[in-house]
Structures are given as C-alpha cells and as structure tokens.
C-alpha cells in the first residue's frame, strides 16, 4: 500500500439535477506525503472541482476522500471543519484575506479558529512564518494596504500557520507577474523541503508545472496524463 496523505477513490461529481453535468468521472488518485504535485488542465476540465473535493469544501456525488488514512465520507460538517483547520492549508487565486485585519492577524486566523486566543508563542510563530515569506516589514499593515504579491504571500503564510500536512493551491499565482510567480514557487519548494508539507497545486502555467515532482493532467473530468519524475 502506498503512503498516501490524501486519496480519492472512485470519485464522481455531477452538477445539476435536471440537466446533469458530469465534472469528474470515477477518479482514483493519491498523493504521497511530502510530495510536490501539479494538476494541470484546460479551464472547465474539472481540476478545481477535484481540488475542492480533496479539500472537503465540496462533497463528491459518489466515491470517497481519504485524508490521513481516514475516510471523510460520513464526517459531520463540524468534524470536516476541524479536519480542514488542522490538516489542510488553502491558497486560492484570489487571496481572500480579511481586509479588516492586519497581515499578522490574518496569519493568526486559522490558529484562533482552533484555539480562540492567540498567545505569545503563536504570535511568535506567525511572525516567523511572515519572515519566511518575506513580509516581516508589513506585518501590521491592513490587508488592503499591501501589494497583490504581498497579499498572496500573506495568504500562503496563513495557510502554513497550523502546520498543515497538505497545502492545496488553486492558481495561486494566477493574478501575479512572472517575477512574483517565480518567488512564490521558490517559497513553496522551500516550505516543501524544510517542513515536509505536501503540495497540490493547480496551475495553467506549464513552466510552473514542470518544476513539480509529479504532473497530473485532467481532461473532461478524467486523468489524461500522470507523470512522476
């Protein structure tokens, strides 16, 4: 048995009730602990749907998602929330920071969702992560007072706060220039190597995908290509 940190088994996803659109066809896919994976595919191919199902934000119509060896099929909403909070970190194309809070407070948010109050230790950790993504100078800026790259890096720092096993990123650099894109992928790699975090990244950019350990291409809801380097 392979050592998968996250795995989908026979996953189908159908949208709509009267006119049915099948987004995913009987998908079987697993990702190894500490691996760095890219999912590519045309828009509408079903890759975002797959990522959302992997992240338990969406439920499959059929099949099962196994995270850390535990099936999520029969988990309650509350249990799934806890699972996301503890095990998964999300980075989306749009950063989705809370504009009412500063960079540091945004990074602390996942920790506070789990623990309520943030003590000195957790604040220090949040600063450390901000340092890692190179934002120590703007930690007290409101999210709205930062550049696009800084906001996205804050979102990455936030995803790292609870030391998740897996980071799911959906076009994390879709809105950024090529220079910032490069620096963000270097950052992902660094985190992957230093902390052993598993990365599953959706991207359009073949150049970016080529840097991954494994490339999975989705076409019309099916895996059309699966290359492991």
């Amino acid at each position: 048995m392979d050592n998968y940190v996250v795995e989908v088994k026979g996953v189908n996803k159908v949208y709509g009730k009267t006119i049915k659109t099948v987004a995913l066809h009987n998908l079987n896919l697993g990702f190894k602990t500490g691996s760095f994976n890219a999912i590519i595919g045309e828009s509408g191919s079903g890759k975002s749907t797959l990522l959302n199902i992997l992240g338990t934000l969406d439920r499959p119509t059929k099949g099962d998602v196994i995270i850390n060896g535990v099936s999520t099929k029969n988990m309650s909403k509350g249990r799934l929330s806890d699972l996301r909070n503890e095990t998964l970190g999300f980075v989306f194309q749009f950063h989705y920071l809370l504009p009412e809070f500063t960079a540091l407070e945004n990074v602390l948010m996942p920790y506070r969702i789990a623990n309520g109050k943030a003590g000195k230790k957790s604040r220090d950790r949040a600063r450390e992560i901000l340092n890692l993504v190179g934002l120590e100078k703007v930690e007290n800026n409101l999210a709205t007072n930062m550049s696009g790259g800084q906001q996205q890096r804050t979102a990455i720092a936030r995803a790292l706060m609870n030391q998740p096993k897996i980071i799911l990123a959906d076009e994390p650099t879709g809105n950024l220039d090529s220079q910032t894109t490069d620096s963000i992928y270097q950052l992902f790699r660094k985190i992957n190597q230093e902390l052993g975090t598993t990365f599953i990244i959706i991207t359009h950019d073949r150049r970016v995908a080529e840097k991954a350990d494994r490339i999975v291409e989705i076409l019309d809801g099916r895996i059309s290509l699966d290359i492991v380097k």
Binding site: K77, G78, S81, R84, Y96, M109
Partner: peptide, 16 residues
C-alpha cells in the same frame, strides 16, 4: 460573505 466563506473554509464552525 467572502470573509465568512474563507473563515469557514479555514475551519470555522457554522455556529461560530
């Protein structure tokens, strides 16, 4: 709704 959505994605429970 964006803020609430992302808070929930990060694991905030519905009652909270």
């Amino acid at each position: 709704s964006k803020q609430i959505g992302i808070l929930k994605a990060m694991g905030m429970h519905n009652p909270k």
